[in-house]
Structure formats: C-alpha cells, structure tokens
C-alpha cells in the first residue's frame, strides 16, 4: 500500500525532510540582477580560473556543494547520497563534481526541472528511511549551454524577443532527517506534456502546459487553494510562459495570479539586462531558491512555498529531426510550519 501517496501524482511525507543548508553561486551578469544581495556568492569571472567553460561550471557546482556542507558543518562522509544534474551531455559538470567529492551519486536529467526532481527523490530517500543526509544540487552555465544547444559565442546572430538567457549559476540544498530548517512536506511529480511547440526560441511556451498541469494536479491532489501558498514559483518560463500558465490555470478554475512568479523573471531585469523573455537553465530555479527563497523561509517571511522547476526535454538531435519540444514540471512544497 502506498500510504504516503495522495491523489494522482502527489506524495505527502510522514517524516518530512528538513532543508538544513543551502548555498548558491551565480555568474557576474546574474550578480547584477535584482536578486544580487541574496546570492551567497557572485563570481567575478565565469571562467573560475579554469581552462574551459565546462570545467568552470563543474568548479562552480563543486564550490557550491562544499560551501553548503560547510554551512551545516558536514563533510562528504556524512552525506549518504548526492542527487543532481546539469544541461550538458552525460551530465559532465555534475558527474565530474561527484568524482571529486566522492559521495554516492545518482545523476539525474530533467533539463531545467532537475532541481525539483533532485529534491523530490532526495526527500523520498530520507522519508523512506534510506538516508539521513542527501544533497540536491544543479548547475547551468550560459557559455556551455549556448554552445551545446545554440550557436558559438562569437557567432553573429540575433535572438528573437521570446528567447531566454541561460543562467550561469548553481544551487545546492542539503536535506536531512534531523535538524532544523524548512521542511519538504509534499512533492508532485509531473508528467511529460507536449503541445506541439517546436520553436527552440520559445521554450517558455513549450514548458508552460507542463507547469500548469503539475500545479493544477498538485492543488487538486492536496485539496489546497492557491492562496494557501505565499508563493507559487515556476522555474524558467519567462514572460511568455508566465502568461500561458496564468491563462491555462484560470481555464481550470485556479486563480494563482496573486501568489505566482517565475524564477526566470526574478533573476534578471529583462528591460535593463537585455535578457529578452527571462532567465532559464537548471541553475535558474536552483540559485533563486537556494539564494533568495531559502533565506525568506528561514526568516519566516514566507511560510509555504510551491516550487515548480520546469524543463524542456529537447535535444539538438530531436530539434534537427523536426520533433516538438516536450515539457516537464516537478513540484515540491517547502513549509516552515
């Protein structure tokens, strides 16, 4: 009997894991954004003294995890599992980070939804009694994502207004069976939803239906109203995706406008920073959550948060083969009560 499962896709934890530590590092551009004072560290140079952007991303992630462990006085030996991923082929940054840290590791790929995917599975491990301390961490880097998914950095081209800007940043969260901190009380695992969008420069529109689906399912599974939450946050939908989510949920009878925001819109000032529709990437929701939101929860300025990281499950090959872009969104509830 799945006693902890409620409704269609939601798990309600009986021994909710506590988020005992969080750390975030972002790149220079993100450090100039509206949330700059909340990030734990802002890089001066996004090469991190490494020889390639991929190595730089790995180092950023490694430093984020090490600092998160330091903050709660843990060493790699205290950690049972590390869960996480990034946007690169074969999870290059995360796998190499796991090699250096030597912590048992599950590599996850959920595109930009990887942060809540990791948090979900970490919470399951802890609630199930399989682990005491689990790290959930993700990263993304503008320059590595750009060359894997789009064009070379020095290539002359123009971005359409619906395009998004990959966040250079990483976030690490340590979940624990004991200690104090905001608790993960529920998770809602998303389904892959595809409404036939194939424009790689409009990812927000491709992912929004998945986000709306997960949020609606979560609300009906838990029987909660949107205003139960101080904030409902999607990962990286940008201007276009935000509008679609609001419209779609309105159509399903949920008015979330008052509490809703998108991490991709919070991290940059689109009008000043020339980021078009907003930020994106695994690091977007990870850095915004571990930097800004976690501190709001700690100081009890907010009590209940629904974090819904959103991912576009495309690849360069699927795009070239003319496939549409499937979206996914996983939700996790953080509560201080």
């Amino acid at each position: 009997m799945a006693v902890k499962k409620i409704g269609q896709q939601t798990i309600q934890f009986q021994n909710p894991p506590k988020a005992i530590s969080a750390y975030s590092i972002v790149g220079p551009k993100e450090g100039q954004g509206p949330l700059n004072i909340w990030f734990d560290e802002v890089l001066e140079d996004d090469m991190c003294q490494e020889k390639s952007f991929e190595k730089a991303e790995g180092r950023m992630l490694r430093n984020t995890i090490i600092s998160a462990m330091k903050k709660c006085k843990k060493t790699p030996k205290d950690i049972d599992y590390m869960l996480g991923g990034d946007l690169l082929n074969q999870l290059m940054s995360t796998s190499y980070t796991a090699r250096d840290l030597s912590i048992p590791f599950f590599g996850l790929y959920g595109a930009c939804s990887t942060m809540t995917e990791s948090i979900s599975l970490a919470s399951v491990l802890i609630d199930g009694g399989f682990a005491d301390h689990v790290i959930a961490a993700t990263s993304s880097h503008f320059s590595t994502a750009e060359r894997q998914f789009r064009f070379p950095l020095e290539h002359g081209n123009q971005r359409p207004p619906t395009a998004q800007w990959t966040v250079t940043g990483s976030g690490a969260l340590i979940l624990s069976s004991e200690g104090s901190g905001p608790m993960v009380t529920h998770i809602t695992t998303g389904k892959v939803v595809d409404y036939g969008i194939s424009d790689v420069n409009n990812m927000g529109a491709a992912m929004a239906p998945a986000a709306a689906d997960t949020i609606a399912t979560h609300l009906s599974d838990t029987g909660r109203m949107p205003d139960f939450y101080d904030m409902i946050l999607t990962g990286d939908l940008g201007e276009v995706g935000k509008k679609i989510v609001l419209d779609m949920l309105m159509g399903k009878g949920f008015s979330i406008e008052k509490v809703y925001n998108d991490c991709g819109l919070m991290i940059f000032d689109n009008s000043k920073q020339d980021t078009h529709s907003g930020g994106s990437g695994c690091g977007c929701s990870a850095a915004v959550f571990c930097g800004y939101i976690y501190k709001q929860l700690q100081s009890k300025k907010v009590k209940n948060i629904l974090l819904v990281s959103t991912g576009a499950l495309l690849s360069t090959i699927s795009t070239q083969q003319g496939e549409s872009i499937p979206g996914i969104a996983h939700a996790a509830v953080f509560s201080t009560a």
Binding site: P161, T162, Y195, G196, I197, N202, K243, I244, S277
Partner: peptide, 19 residues
C-alpha cells in the same frame, strides 16, 4: 491532439512578442 496542438500554437503565436 493535432487540433489542440494547432490551437495552442496559434494562441502562443498571438501572445508572443514579435520582432
């Protein structure tokens, strides 16, 4: 499903900012 996708694509086109 095809019709729904078409409808959605049209809606997205309408609300997306144009160059």
């Amino acid at each position: 499903k095809n019709q729904l996708n078409k409808k959605y694509n049209k809606y997205v086109k309408d609300i997306s900012p144009k160059p």
